[in-house]
Design a protein around this nucleic acid. Structure first.
Length: 270
DNA sequence: GGCCAAATAT
DNA sequence: CATATTTGGC
């Protein structure tokens, strides 16, 4: 019996289509290293420079700062949700990487991150509309796009007007981050024991900010910070003076290929 | 070796 | 900024 399946709540499994995707194979999960992520981890945590880090030459440590390659960004459902919200709010025409990035105001998020994601998202939308046009009426139904084609994209509902170029735009509704419908879509409180896969690697992860937490931007140079209205509370990376502070609600999330990833979104920020 | 998502190159 | 191609972990 696939132990993976039993450990996941049905709705979650549905939402992300974990485990029974014809498309995806989950290889056999090796025994999970319960990798307790202590804040003391010297290297892994704040790879991307905090302002002090680069400034604090003292450090004595290894901080080529410039030569440091950024960890691979993981697009969690939450992050993607924010992305979708931003795009929706901007309207298709204004939704270009830079603007989206600004609106999202997630620190550590680069324009290229967004651009790459946007590219994939557009392809996704294209597939989506071609199906809704040709095949049938029902988008979410079985037409061909089962909610799992892309785990991530399926996790956030696609605003209607995204699919209709003809009479596009108007950011009409798009509630500001009300924890509305989407919340039930993925109330992912995955069992911590869910199958893990291979060796951990360093990912960038983001935490959400305290309610009124002001944000500094670690490596967003320029004093001209965001002059774009934000969608919700800004999110900033969890690098904290060089060590990661894990919130209580740390949550495991497995993305498509079984990449195991630690995400730090305490509550439904979305 | 394939498949995927994200990164990087054009 | 868009699109194409490469990378790298599974």
């Amino acid at each position: 019996m696939p132990l993976s399946q039993s450990l996941i709540t049905p709705d979650l499994a549905l939402a992300f289509n974990i485990s029974n995707n014809p498309h995806h194979h989950h290889h056999t999960p090796p025994p999970p290293p319960p990798q307790q992520q202590s804040a003391s981890q010297p290297n892994s945590s704040a790879e991307f420079d905090s302002p002090e880090l680069s400034g604090a030459a003292a450090a004595g440590s290894d901080e080529p700062a410039r030569t440091l390659k950024r960890p691979r960004l993981v697009w969690t459902p939450q992050l993607h949700k924010r992305f979708v919200d931003a795009v929706a709010h901007l309207g298709i025409k204004n939704a270009v990487p830079k603007t989206i990035m600004q609106l999202m105001s997630v620190d550590g998020l680069t324009r290229e991150n967004v651009a790459s994601h946007l590219q994939k998202y557009r392809l996704y939308l294209k597939r989506m509309q071609s199906i809704s046009n040709g095949g049938g009426s029902n988008i979410s139904a079985a037409s061909g796009v089962d909610p799992a084609t892309d785990h991530l994209f399926a996790s956030s509902p696609v605003p209607a007007h995204f699919l209709h170029p003809g009479r596009a735009n108007s950011d009409h509704f798009l509630p500001f981050v009300p924890v509305a419908a989407a919340a039930m879509q993925h109330h992912h409180q995955m069992a911590a024991a869910a199958h893990h896969h291979h060796h951990p690697q360093q990912f960038r992860h983001f935490g959400n900010s305290p309610p009124n937490g002001q944000f500094e931007h670690p490596f967003l140079r320029q004093s001209s910070q965001q002059q774009v209205q934000r969608i919700g509370a800004p999110i900033h990376s969890s690098s904290n003076g060089g060590s990661v502070v894990l919130p209580n609600y740390a949550d495991d999330f497995e993305s498509a290929n079984g990449r195991k990833v630690l995400t730090l979104f305490p509550n439904g920020d979305d």
